[in-house]
Design a protein around this nucleic acid. Structure first.
Length: 219
DNA sequence: GCGACAG
DNA sequence: ATCTTGTCGC
């Protein structure tokens, strides 16, 4: 997509945060239901406690199919709808997908960061672009750079001992080193960061609005 | 041409 | 994203 190639140069890898973020948001989109509608969700957490500060959702019909490399065009319209309902402005946004680790260096985290002019980080559960430079040690916090076409586009980060890594890459207004630090600060016992994990639950309707934190495993 | 392919 | 039982506990 030409839009991605045109916007990619506007991504900033400089740290845009003065100190640690006070509010971190996670965003996600549910799969479409029987009606064809999906739900974009945003969950804002306070740092360093990771307590829920606010939850917002926005339901509608995705206007774009899932195409690898074009995820942001499917997910962002509904996610932005949820973000516009926020009262609590996040200092940092975590997206479920890639940032720079993308064929055109413009994954969903870059797109979201530019559109909101907010520091953003991509946290994907699987790899899309880049090869791990070496072996990944098994302990939490270990990481190896992801290289693609001679550039470091992100890192595979072990967020729990002995579990598969997540793929962290820059979205906007953040350095890779800071991004990895904040992602780890957001991981509390699960493979994925709390903000995106909770956004996933909120999109699925498993989190009502604000107060109760639903327990780990239920069906 | 072939393979790979975030959610 | 989804399809699914038993198995394991770093």
């Amino acid at each position: 997509m030409d839009i991605q190639r045109r916007l990619a140069p506007r991504v900033s890898a400089e740290d845009g945060l003065k100190g640690p973020p006070r509010y971190v948001a996670g965003v996600d989109l549910s799969p479409p239901g029987p009606s064809g509608n999906a739900v974009g969700a945003v969950v804002v957490l306070g740092l360093p406690d990771l307590q829920i500060a606010e939850v917002q959702v926005f339901e509608g019909k995705p206007g774009f199919p899932y195409v690898p490399g074009l995820l942001s065009f499917r997910e962002l319209p509904l996610v932005l709808g949820a973000l516009e309902r926020l009262v609590t402005a996040p200092d940092l946004i975590l997206a479920d997908g890639q940032g720079l680790a993308h064929p055109r260096r413009f994954g969903i985290a870059c797109h979201l960061g530019l559109l909101t002019d907010t520091p953003a980080i991509g946290c994907a559960k699987s790899n899309l672009r880049g090869l791990m430079e070496g072996a990944l040690p098994p302990e939490r916090g270990a990481y190896v750079p992801l290289a693609d076409r001679g550039e470091v586009v992100g890192a595979a980060v072990r967020t729990r001992e002995y579990v598969n890594p997540i793929y962290v890459s820059i979205g906007h207004k953040v350095s890779l080193g800071s991004a990895m630090g904040w992602v780890l600060a957001c991981c509390k016992g699960y493979r994925v960061p709390e903000p995106t994990r909770l956004a996933h639950l909120a999109a699925a309707g498993r989190i009502s609005s604000r107060e109760p934190i639903v327990l780990g495993n239920a069906r």
